[in-house]
């Protein structure tokens, strides 16, 4: 079980690293022992619906899956427009005026055109869900997981309310912005970084860790995703790395394996030569991954690893990943 003080999990990473998969698995893993977890999508991609194989998520908290340990996962796609109207209604009781604002193009302006304001609304809704309490005064959600924008935009996204606080010196917007930054800067939040063992994702992870630390946002765990296993034993790897394994070395076992290259000896040799080249590339890749693992450790954060799932991600695979996250203490 992860740090119980953390109730807001922000999941980011370079594009293509599996943010949505990890965020969803994390929500499933956190939803144990009757806990209620809210999984939020902020990018309008409907990635969560696709991965869980449910209908597109509306702007409404809906039960989408049972937790890995007997809890419940709800999900919502946060859309800036209803978030704005809800905000106006909730804090200012501007039901009718909200609609007039729409008529004057204000809603359109705020939600799609004006740079930055979308992010204010998206983070605001996450904050609201995080703070919400039921009639008994208990938190409505034991944890909130945000499938956040990628590393290239995460700092700007999470820090947008700081900018807003700088603009609004006093008043309700200032108070709201300060409250959101208060939660984001607190121990209740953890920003997890998803990466692959490839140069650019690792570099972006380290860059993001540095940028987030610079503005005092609490870093969580680095999740190394899609880790490949190797079918080669130590001796073979070393022989390939030292270019000491040759096609001829495979000849006897190739025959024993029934590979006679469709009758011709040259075909068998060609196959063996090709296998050695593939093996050498694989070993080169493994060496690169080993170096990148060491780089990941430089972030100074706990690291969890998730093995590559063959044949794509489905609900069963998500529960497997959730288990792996629990075993490694993230969920």
């Amino acid at each position: 079980m992860g740090d119980p003080a953390v109730r807001l999990h922000v999941v980011t990473g370079k594009g293509g690293t599996g943010k949505t998969t990890v965020a969803t698995a994390l929500a499933l893993g956190l939803a144990s022992g009757g806990r209620r977890v809210l999984l939020c999508e902020a990018e309008g991609r409907q990635g969560i619906a696709r991965i869980l194989d449910v209908a597109p998520l509306p702007y409404e908290e809906r039960a989408v899956a049972l937790g890995a340990g007997g809890g419940e996962v709800l999900a919502i796609a946060i859309d800036p427009e209803p978030a704005l109207l809800e905000y106006l209604d909730m804090y200012y009781r501007l039901g009718r005026a909200g609609r007039v604002l729409d008529r004057f193009g204000v809603v359109d302006f705020v939600t799609t055109i004006a740079p930055g304001l979308r992010d204010v609304l998206l983070t605001g809704k996450v904050y609201e869900a995080h703070q919400r309490r039921d009639k008994q005064g208990r938190h409505s959600f034991d944890a909130v997981v945000l499938d956040a924008p990628p590393t290239g935009r995460i700092t700007r996204f999470l820090n947008v309310n700081h900018e807003v606080a700088g603009l609004a010196k006093v008043g309700p917007i200032r108070n709201q912005a300060d409250a959101i930054m208060g939660v984001l800067h607190s121990r209740a939040t953890a920003v997890h970084l998803v990466t692959l063992l490839e140069d650019m994702p690792v570099q972006e992870t380290l860059d993001a860790a540095e940028q987030l630390a610079a503005i005092s946002l609490p870093l969580g765990t680095v999740v190394v995703n899609q880790v490949r296993t190797t079918p080669l034993d130590d001796d073979t790897r070393q022989a390939l790395a030292g270019a000491r394994l040759r096609a001829g070395d495979l000849a006897a076992t190739m025959r024993a394996a029934g590979l006679r290259g469709r009758g011709t000896a040259s075909a068998a040799t060609e196959i063996a030569a090709g296998l050695v080249v593939e093996g050498a590339q694989h070993v080169q890749r493994l060496a690169l991954e080993e170096r990148l693992r060491a780089d990941v450790a430089q972030a100074g954060r706990p690291v969890v690893t998730l093995d590559e799932i063959e044949g794509g991600i489905d609900l069963g695979a998500l529960y497997e990943l959730a288990d792996r996250l629990r075993q490694q203490g993230l969920a």
Binding site: P231, D235, T253, A256, A257
Partner: peptide
């Protein structure tokens, strides 16, 4: 199939582990 054939063949052939590993790698690839 070659991996299976190799497993069934109990002769003492050199380089068994290397060939097996490379065949598994190739199949995945």
């Amino acid at each position: 199939q070659a991996v299976d054939t190799l497993a069934d063949n109990t002769d003492d052939v050199p380089g068994r582990a290397a060939t097996r590993g490379l065949l598994v790698l190739h199949a995945a690839r």
